[in-house]
């Protein structure tokens, strides 16, 4: 589904990604771990099409198609979803109106009519109950005054509504207490099908107790320096990142 080869990316002439190779197939869950500043968030931004970053080498294929030149909205229409570490506040635009706009933009891109209001409402009800979101929350301004947990839950709600092929969860666990973490993880697991894939980006192993990865990759200095199964995450939790750094240095 997603094939990244020898990907180099920079921002303001500073190289952040230095040759990433990653292959994600439908039905898989990949975890990308690594110390702060290793390039985790950059990788997710680059996949989602953030124009602040320049790809200097390598390729990103999604569904066999080169997405290098595609805008963020085109990538979204193709089925890529990024759950943000720091979702942006949009005062005056309710959660409901925002998701309607997003969903209908997606349908328009696919040459479809706007979703009928009743169907939209039904879908919103269904997906919000999955994440334990009440209706009052839906009429609030997007992310404005939301707690950390509410913001992340709202990200997963948007993901549930948009039904992406590839979901990238960027530090979705940061700022969440254990109860919120469980709700978010349950939501992600419930949305999993054999046809979609998930990339979980995290600093800590904790989230991976709830969202079980098929593969774990360690990112360091803009490169994947080690890949393994969920056992690797446990090892990192126990030993920290220093041994990886040493291994790379040695």
């Amino acid at each position: 589904m997603l094939t990244i080869e020898n990907l180099h990316a920079e921002i303001d002439d500073k190289g952040i990604l230095n040759g990433i190779d990653l292959d994600v197939k439908a039905g898989e869950v990949h975890a990308i771990m690594g110390p702060n500043g290793s390039g985790k968030s950059t990788l997710s931004s680059v996949i989602a099409g953030n124009e602040d970053y320049e790809i200097t080498q390598g390729s990103i294929l999604f569904g066999g198609e080169d997405i290098h030149e595609m805008s963020p909205e085109e990538r979204s229409h193709k089925g890529i979803f990024l759950s943000f570490q720091y979702p942006v506040e949009i005062p005056g635009v309710s959660v409901t109106n925002f998701i309607k706009t997003a969903l209908n933009a997606q349908r328009k891109a696919a040459g479809e009519e706007d979703m009928p209001a009743a169907a939209m409402l039904k879908k919103i009800r269904e997906k919000s109950s999955l994440l334990g979101i009440d209706s009052k929350f839906l009429s609030r301004s997007l992310n404005q005054g939301f707690s950390g947990g509410e913001k992340k839950r709202n990200e997963i709600f948007q993901m549930a509504m948009m039904e992406p092929k590839l979901a990238i969860l960027d530090e979705t666990d940061s700022g969440l207490d254990i109860d919120a973490l469980k709700i978010v993880a349950d939501g992600v697991n419930a949305l999993k099908t054999p046809n979609n894939a998930t990339i979980v980006i995290t600093h800590y192993q904790r989230l991976l107790d709830y969202i079980i990865p098929d593969f774990v990759h360690v990112l360091y200095n803009g490169k994947i320096v080690k890949s393994g199964t969920k056992e690797l995450a446990k090892e990192l939790e126990a030993k920290g990142y220093d041994w990886i750094k040493k291994e790379v240095a040695g």
Partner: peptide
């Protein structure tokens, strides 16, 4: 960053700017 957030939800640039 906010513009990127909106566009990553499939909202075209012009509409994202308007929002």
């Amino acid at each position: 960053e906010a513009l990127f957030y909106l566009r990553s939800r499939g909202i075209p640039k012009k509409e994202a700017k308007a929002l």
